[in-house]
Amino acid sequence: MTRFSNHLRKVVLVPALTAALAASLAGIAAAPAAAQGAANQTDGSTDAAESASAARATAFVQELLANAEAALTEEDATDAARLDAFQTVLRDGLALDLLSRFVVSRKVYADMTDDQRSRYDKAFPDYISRQYAEQFDGILGRPLEVTGTVSRNADVYVRTEFKREEGSPLKVDWRTRARSEDRLEIVDIIVNSASIMSVKRAEFTSFVAANGVDALLVEIEKSVRPATLPSEESIATDKEALPPEASPEAAEDVQAPPADR
C-alpha cells in the first residue's frame, strides 16, 4: 500500500493532525483551565442541556487524550505494550463501527461477502488506530487550548487549537457523539476545517474502484503489523526541534525504526 500510504502522508492536514495530537498529550496539564475557558466560550448556547453536552464532550476529549498520553509514556511497559495500550485507548474512543462503514462506503460494505466483511471488521480497528499511532514521533509537547464547542444535530464538536511559531493557530475539531447514555465516541477529527475521515474515504473508495475489495483487505491486513513506538528519549529531545509544520518528509521519517535514527 505504498501509494495508499504516501497519499495519506501527503495530506497536508496529517502532519498538523499529528502535531495536534502530540501537543494535546504534552499540554494536558494546562488543559483543565483552558477547557473551562472553552466551556464558557460555547457560542450562542444558553440551553442548559446543550451546555451540559458541551461540557461532557470536552471532558471526554480531554480524558481520551490524557489516556493516550499515559499509554505512550508508561515507563514500565515495552514498546509493543505501549503501542497496544495506545491503540486500545483509540479503539475505545473512536466510533469504529460508523467509521469502518463510512470510509469504505455503505454500498461497498453491504456488497462484501461474509468472509470479506469479517476480515475487514477485524483489521480495520487496528489499521486506523495504528495509522494515528505511527504519526506520533517528534510532535509531542505542544501547548494545546480548548477554545470552544458547537452542537450540530446529534453531535458536539470540541475545538482545540495549538499555536504555531508562524502562521495562524492550527485548529483541530473533535466530533463527538453519544452512542449511549453514558458513552461518547469520536466520529471524526477535523483539522483546519477538513475532515480526516472524508480524506480517508476518498482514498479507500478510489482504491477499491481501481483494485477491488480483496486488494484493499490485503493492504489493510499487511499494514497491521507490529510497529515500533518512538522511544521516550526521542520524544523528549525532539520536543523543541519540531518545525512549525511537519513536512511530509518528516512524517515519513516516523516510519524508520529508532535504531536507524
Partner: peptide, 11 residues
C-alpha cells in the same frame, strides 16, 4: 462529514 468541517462556520 463534509459539513462537520463547517460546523463552527455555520454559527
Amino acid at each position: 462529514f463534509t459539513a462537520g468541517g463547517l460546523a463552527f462556520a455555520l454559527q
